[in-house]
């Protein structure tokens, strides 16, 4: 449940309904967006809605165990908040497709892998956000990160943070995950250099290590 609910509505604030509509209008693109924008002034709700879209609100996000005050627009994605609005910017999480098709922006939200480009920043309030920057303990890499380096599971490295997060999300739930289960966990992640076989080797090795060491 986000803070934007009908019950919370107050003068000058948002209702869940108007917020979602606004977000939808702006997040859409191309023909749909133009149609929606053109149609908006036709209704009272639409008129009231348009000026609100430019506004920023301050929200709190818990990123890698640290509470951050972040100024966001309703449409701001969690990805954009991480890369541009938290201080310092968390640029390890990558923007690649911006539509949930490639997994490069994967973060863990309460332990579940999500595409941060498909998650609104406001919806991440009150939830535990873990990013690629939050896995290593100082200079000590997490078992998944070490296994990626050892197995050459990265080439250009742009998809790597997303894969590391997907594998981490999978193995933290079940270090015994089989290779087909690992493949399913990473089936939303794309790599163009072609590191997949080495990613599989790394994930299997990391699972073994996490099971033995019990480390996260």
């Amino acid at each position: 449940m986000t803070e934007f609910s009908d019950r919370d509505s107050k003068p000058g604030g948002y209702t869940r309904r108007s917020f979602l509509k606004g977000a939808g209008t702006v997040a859409a693109s191309g023909v749909v967006a133009q149609t929606a924008l053109a149609a908006a002034p036709e209704t009272a709700e639409g008129r009231a809605l348009v000026p609100r879209l430019a506004g920023e609100v301050e929200i709190q996000l818990e990123v890698n165990g640290k509470t951050q005050k972040v100024k966001c627009e309703p449409r701001t994605t969690l990805l954009s908040a991480l890369r541009h609005r938290v201080d310092p910017p968390h640029t390890g999480t990558k923007l690649v497709c911006d539509q949930g098709a490639c997994g490069a922006c994967t973060v863990l939200l309460d332990g579940e892998p999500v595409c941060s480009c498909m998650t609104l920043a406001v919806d991440a309030q009150g939830r535990e956000i873990r990013t690629i920057e939050g896995l290593a303990d100082g200079d000590a890499l997490s078992p998944v990160q070490s296994a990626f380096v050892e197995n050459d599971a990265l080439m250009c490295g742009f998809c790597t943070p997303g894969f590391v997060m997907s594998v981490t999300g999978c193995l933290e739930k079940n270090p015994d995950a089989s290779l087909p289960e690992i493949k399913t966990a990473c089936s939303g992640n794309l790599c163009r250099c072609g590191t997949y076989p080495h990613i599989f080797d790394a994930a299997v090795q990391a699972g073994r290590q996490m099971k033995q060491g019990g480390t996260k």
């Binding site: 541009h84 390890g92 690629i132 290593a136 890499l141 380096v149 990265l154 490295g157 790597t160």
Partner: peptide
């Protein structure tokens, strides 16, 4: 040989042009 920049890439510390602020 392990890639010498593997760690930077696996931790998100590697700064690409996209990441310059």
């Amino acid at each position: 040989l392990r890639r010498v920049d593997g760690e930077a890439k696996a931790t998100g510390r590697a700064v690409y042009s996209h990441d310059v602020r």
